[in-house]
Computed example of a mutant assay.
Amino acid sequence: MVLPIYNLIWMPAVLEAAGLKVAETPGWRSRGRAEMGTVRGVMCHHTATAAPGNMPTLKTLINGRSDLPGPLAQLGLGRDGTFYVIAAGRANHAGAGYWEGIKYGNSSFIGIEAENSGLANDPWPDIQMDAYHRGVAALLAHIGADAGKCCGHKEYALPKGRKPDPSFDMPTFRSSVAAFLSGKTPEPPIPAKDEQDRPTLRRGDSGALVAALQRALEIDDDGKFGPGTEKAVRAAQRKAGLVPDGIVGPKSWAALNPPLTASTSALASAPASGPAPQAQTVAMAALPVAGAASLPIADDANHPVVVRGGIAFGPGGQRFASRLSQGFYTLGLRPPPPGWGGHRRQACLVPLLALLPQHARTKADSKP
């Protein structure tokens, strides 16, 4: 049997281009009640589930309930800000309602179910809300819609009062989405470094600070922040009562507090810009900007393009990932892949590899 491929297959690329974490569920391209109609907006929900974990309702969103077959949304949003891609076709998420001239919700709105109980004792993590704003803005921009085409289920559903989700204030939410759509650059939810100048680390980073982190986590200290390190970070964050987002920012550094050697201390206290250290092993160093012309144009003096801790933020608030493979700064291992970057905007930083002496460059290139 040949399964259909539905139209919303563009969603992961759009979300990734906005700097968001994306996880695709098996079979999502062929999952849906039917094909979507003309996509006119995005509808926000919360799952109303109090179960622990990052996205405990994922299976239910895929398979549905006894009274409502799945999929129940096109996207799920975990507490750590990860978007789970569930379906490229129509989903049973809207029901009867009306918003901005739209009365057929399932065929007109992309549905996002964000993991939250909706209760007063279940606050929304900053990393999740930031991803919600950025993700909705990216989807609306792709379909050519403004922030007014983002609604909450509680606003759309009829009769009024039929649905309470999402629990946050929708006008305030739309204002944040509108800021992204207009090219503003809100502060990232996690600072680029802590008070000891230790940079925020995430999957894809590598180097001496990652190795120090791994030793604090009591795992293999290969210096590469991969899936295993991210899993260990999440576990440590849960134990410390932090949001288990797998990102080591100031709060996680304080909870883990690994001892720093002289070399890792030097890396942690490196200036935010300027020439990279001349050494055979270079990692987590910030790079000089290649030049104003290579960065996206700023909106105005209050919303410039910025580089924090080696991560570039465009005027639209996009967080460009700091991994070498995405071309923004390099750990001195190998040059960016040929032809990378033609499909999305990028902020170019000088490759660190070019700043190394030749013998160090040769040694770095020999690594897998």
Rank of each mutant, 00 (worst) to 15 (best):
V22T: 05
V305G: 06
L8D: 07
T200K: 08
F168L: 11
A138R: 04
K163S: 15
Y84N: 05
G204R: 05
Q74E: 15
A120D: 15
A120K: 15
L201K: 06
R203A: 09
V282F: 07
A94H: 00
A262D: 14
G105S: 09
S66P: 05
Q278L: 12
P166S: 06
A17Q: 10
D365R: 13
D67E: 11
A18M: 06
F173D: 11
G27I: 02
A268K: 12
R238K: 10
S273T: 15
T25C: 14
Q358I: 11
G317V: 05
Q318C: 11
N63A: 14
G101D: 05
V248R: 05
F83S: 03
R344Y: 06
L68F: 02
R134A: 13
A120L: 12
T82A: 08
R215D: 12
K363D: 12
R65G: 10
L201A: 07
K251W: 01
I112H: 03
A347M: 09
P189S: 12
S66L: 10
Q318L: 08
C150T: 08
G183S: 03
L72A: 01
V42P: 11
L256S: 07
T229G: 09
G241M: 10
E113L: 11
R174G: 06
A13Q: 07
M170A: 10
E218S: 14
A232N: 01
A147V: 06
Q237A: 08
R31D: 01
G152Y: 04
C150E: 09
P123R: 08
P277E: 00
Q280T: 03
R33S: 05
G148Y: 14
G339K: 04
G317D: 08
D220A: 13
D146F: 02
Y98A: 08
N63H: 10
R361V: 06
A88E: 02
I5R: 12
V210W: 13
E195C: 07
A73G: 11
V282A: 03
L287Q: 09
T185R: 14
T362Y: 08
H133D: 15
I86P: 01
A292N: 10
A298P: 07
D130L: 04
Y156W: 01
T264A: 15
G95R: 09
